[in-house]
Simulated scan of single mutants.
Amino acid sequence: MKLGTHSQTFHADDVYATVFLLHVYNDAEIVRSREEDVLKSCDIVYDVGRGKYDHHSRDKMYRENGIPYAASGLIWRDFGKQIIKNAGIQEADVIETIAREIDEEMVQPLDAIDNGIEIEKSLPILDIASVVRLMNPAWDAEDSEDEAFQKAVSITNVIFSEYLNKKLAGYRAVPIVKRAFETREMSQLLVLPKGCPWEKTLLRLDQKKEVLFVITPRKNGQFTIQSVPPQSGSFAKRKPFPDDWGGLEGKQLESVTGVPGSVFCHTGLWLAVAASLDGAIQLAKLAIDA
């Protein structure tokens, strides 16, 4: 299998498209060229050549939400579900959901940037597209662009693989969160038997917005209490911890709360830690009643 993309300066679009394809054809040869005869020898050509996986023509394809496809999005559209299936997921509805979420969270921003659409940022941030762009050789360097591209693909492959693994791990946690939600003793408090991703599942299940805090065990034997956000990814809180807890730890926090084994409360009032499950429940109940 030969995969063909353009030579010279690379961007996150062609690098991520390469990574996606390597998750399907892991022993493929990567050919970087702008020569038509060279690209004709490739099985799949993307981000160049004006073919199926090039988005540089006037009749480019758009998603229903108006975000145009770039090469990474076109490749993900056609190969994303196979990648997820290769990772061990077999349920068609779960594959469909994960593929859509990855497109929304990772691929659409990449496509937007490559198509010249401004991504709104409240603060400057070195995003994944910027990281890939930095890997191009400096203007006065004599480094090989092809070697730099291979390095970018290797690093990006690690990023995407970890991202995909965490996404799949979230779905493996769904039954754990669902059972804890259905069997909870207090409507405002969710206690999980193990630390796992809970936010998206809980927000989907908790239609009445009853749960205010979630308790999870930590690997060191302590327990974390987190305030539930109103929506996924938000820094807001359905209910914060009391103001006078913020930034306190150890004996200071114990003195204010009256709970032995109180370990820490974040200044942002969204997270607290206790040495035992009983202590965590006591802290959560105090915060609920405050």
Rank of each mutant, 00 (worst) to 15 (best):
107 V>G: 14
109 P>W: 00
109 P>G: 01
112 A>R: 11
112 A>S: 09
112 A>T: 08
112 A>N: 12
113 I>L: 12
114 D>E: 14
115 N>E: 11
118 E>Q: 05
118 E>N: 08
119 I>S: 00
121 K>W: 04
121 K>T: 03
121 K>E: 05
122 S>R: 05
122 S>H: 06
122 S>N: 03
123 L>W: 03
123 L>E: 07
124 P>R: 10
127 D>A: 08
128 I>T: 15
129 A>M: 01
130 S>N: 07
131 V>C: 06
133 R>D: 13
134 L>V: 02
135 M>P: 03
137 P>C: 13
138 A>R: 13
138 A>D: 13
139 W>D: 09
140 D>N: 15
140 D>A: 11
141 A>Q: 15
142 E>D: 15
143 D>S: 10
144 S>P: 12
145 E>F: 15
147 E>T: 09
148 A>W: 03
148 A>F: 00
148 A>P: 07
149 F>H: 04
150 Q>N: 14
151 K>L: 13
152 A>F: 05
152 A>P: 01
153 V>W: 00
154 S>N: 07
154 S>R: 11
154 S>Q: 12
155 I>P: 00
155 I>R: 07
157 N>E: 12
157 N>V: 04
157 N>S: 15
158 V>I: 14
158 V>F: 10
158 V>Y: 09
159 I>C: 10
160 F>T: 08
160 F>C: 03
161 S>R: 09
162 E>H: 13
164 L>W: 02
164 L>Q: 02
164 L>I: 13
165 N>D: 13
167 K>H: 01
168 L>V: 07
168 L>R: 11
172 R>Y: 01
172 R>P: 00
176 I>N: 12
176 I>R: 09
176 I>L: 14
178 K>I: 11
178 K>L: 06
